[in-house]
Design a protein around this nucleic acid. Sequence first.
RNA 1: GCCCGGGUGGCGGAAUGGCAUACGCGGGGGACUUAAAAUCCCUUGCCCUCACGGGCGUGCGGGUUCGAAUCCCGCCCCGGGCACCA
Length: 838
Amino acid sequence: MTGRVAEYEPRQIEAKWQKVWEEQDAFDAKDCDSSRPKYYLLEMLPYPSGTLHMGHMRNYTIGDAVARYKRMRGFNVLHPMGWDAFGLPAENAAIKNQTHPREWTNANIAEFRRVLRRFGFSYDWRREISTCDPGYYRWNQWFFLRMLEKGIAYRKKSKVNWCPQCETVLANEQVIDGFCWRHEDTQVESKELEQWFWRITQYADKLLDDMKTLAGGWPERVLAMQRNWIGKSRGTRIRFEVAQMDGMSFEVFTTRVDTIYGASALVLSPGHPQVNQLLDGVPGRAWMEGQLKTLRQKSTKVADVATAEKEGFFTGRFAVNPFSGENLPIWVANFVLAEYGTGALMAVPAHDERDYEFAEKYQLPVKMVIQPAHAAPLRADQFSEAYTEYGRVVNSGPYNGLTSEEAIARMTADAQSKGFGFGETTFRLKDWGISRQRYWGTPIPVIYCDKDGIVAVPDDQLPVRLPEEVKLTGQGKSPLASDPQFVNTTCPKCGGPARRETDTMDTFVDSSWYFYRYTDPHNEKAPFDKEIVKYWFTIDQYVGGITHAILHLLYSRFFCKVMRDLGLVQHDEPIARLFTQGMVQKGGVAMSKSRGNVVGAVEMAEKYGADTGRVYTLFAAPPEKDLEWSEEAIEGSSRFLNKVYRLVAKHAERLREMPFDSSKQTDMATASAKEKILVRRTHQTLKRVTNDFETRWHFNTSVSSLMELLNEIQAQEPLDVDVSPLIVKRALCAFVLMLSPMAPHIAEELWEMLGQSGGLSKEKWPEYREDLTKEEQIEIPVQINGRLRGKVLVSDGISDDETTELALKDARIAALLDGKQVVKTVVVPKKLVNIVMR
RNA sequence: GCCCGGGUGGCGGAAUGGCAUACGCGGGGGACUUAAAAUCCCUUGCCCUCACGGGCGUGCGGGUUCGAAUCCCGCCCCGGGCACCA
């Protein structure tokens, strides 16, 4: 045919088209364009540290394939990128390298940006944001002030993790099994500090309820994790008076008030604030103090707490069961959490596993008050474990015979009317502590004045800038406190001397609303324009890792609800659909710098080309599954693109001038056999790939469909005999268009080689035609008793009876059926025949 | 303990009630080449058989069905999340 064919040079092609895209602003999204449907596609913004590896790239490749597909489908696509630029690693790196966190961060951002461009992701770069810019974080401060006005932001003393070696507060993530991450032999202490909190608990119910609207769009396991985290629990609060101590009482929270007649003790947490008062004047007090101290000092390691043996002591005091009037001994025990419920509980050994275990050890009575509703009754002498199911209430005075549900309702109502209790809902979720004693974050915009107390920084003084010249030592308290120029200020109210807040905000604040800023990134008067947000929101599709299933995604939902209450947005949920992609692993574990198993994105792109990297990450596994990186398997994707390039290059010359109109299709009545194959295979592939993009995103099968189509086209060689050039051109153009979301650079190059102009970013996705996917003749399997015994060729419109007849006539089938009785035949049209014989 | 995933060739995976192992990697054989690389062709689940052919086979055991990797019941194993939450 033609002479020597040029070789596929990914580096050259990729640079060429990236430049073209940039010059054409090919991926700019147009605000408030009502002529097209909008599509907001978002990938989680990276923390710019270390190197971008293939784990990042997988996330962006999945997103980019969808973004490009949606554009071809006629959507106005918003596909932005930015940097989660505040955070501890920058500060630590700065201390280590004697640089400024901003320098370190900016260098990383520059590198990340370069690598993302090297992969040709179709971002609207005009909208790039960086959370460490004062132009961004001033809006963190602005939101903080609005929350302060609303009472959502408040200050209280709270326990923090404190390392006595570092002399600083540690984030929960920096506490490893109760020890400091930098001092493996130093136990982290608990210390009380004044901290700023955001009242996320005020939205607990809403956060839980609104998850109903996310069902279907969010992975069930993410919803399950959030549900678990919020931890809603409905129950009853009951007050127990202490016998012979006037006015002293304890409240307990229980979800099973129906078991209260079976209570055999009242148990307090060692951390309960009233323990000391209770022990006043009790004989043996000194011994008890010792016991208390031991219980309180027990390891706080998570693993230990869960498996620790139950221990406790009897206080010598008694509480009165308000339902039965019975006196219950008051105990203090390690298994009662101070932070949950009321820090006290009623122990019902017969119907709670933990209480049973405790009662066994300390010989407390086990009183059965619930019997199974449908199974055989429990017998006291055969009781070996707690019965925790609902059932029918017994031995409970006036409540006997009720079901658990009825008893809970009745007893809660009675407690309320008699004044010793009420129905209550508790949550595991706690308010969000946002104070960090760190430098590299958003300064909290508050001033402390001796005269006026806590004073908000006025809006017109925002942003409160991070001072650039601060000495970072990693020691002591908040770094900002060591900068007198920053700390000392004047009170906005009285003008007198005052001090600035020296803590900064948790970096999760930055990422809780960043996706709103993309819609209007340069606005200096507001965090964003309401109308523009209204146009773009909600986010149609969010793509990111499962690691953020709780914190980031819960905080973002909370922020949205606060913003709605502030009148800034009108929607209840910011993200309609969430896709969590699997990790990229090497040697069975996630890629990470510390493990030294990182495959750098740049190295990968230089060796094989960005398109090959993209195709491989899509092909190697379905996107939600973890993917084991294989240097050998990537060769397959490289070979595939090389083959595609050679095929198109071989035929491009003679097809270049051929006019091509994708809306016109071949007349199958006059087509040759080869032409029919080309047309049908093309439309079959179009159908499969379109389905993959529209439904479950299994791009691995999209790539394999294209590989099969490529093989089919090659099998029809020579393509200049018995095939009209127009049909070859249509097949190749459809191929290139289908490839373009996944391997955009080579697709652009081939498109140009085929004589098509204007670039692919303006092209439409090719529609398949159902009738053109149909084969004239189909080979279907013939089974006897469900076992494959032969095959017959049937034509498209054949009836079931005709199919059966054909199958029975098949020589091999006939031989097997000889002398046997056919009981029944099953025909699945165009799929299969099954003959049941005896 | 509870909740969510998952278990298919040597490997990544395909098939979601209808031909198990598509596509790719790896392996074996061949063509081209002085040679190598690249490329192309053939082959590749296990067992029996010279062969034709047959049997087995989707973690295990049952069930439903003309037909099960797929649906149902009961287990086992692996991964992840939560975990003394009253």
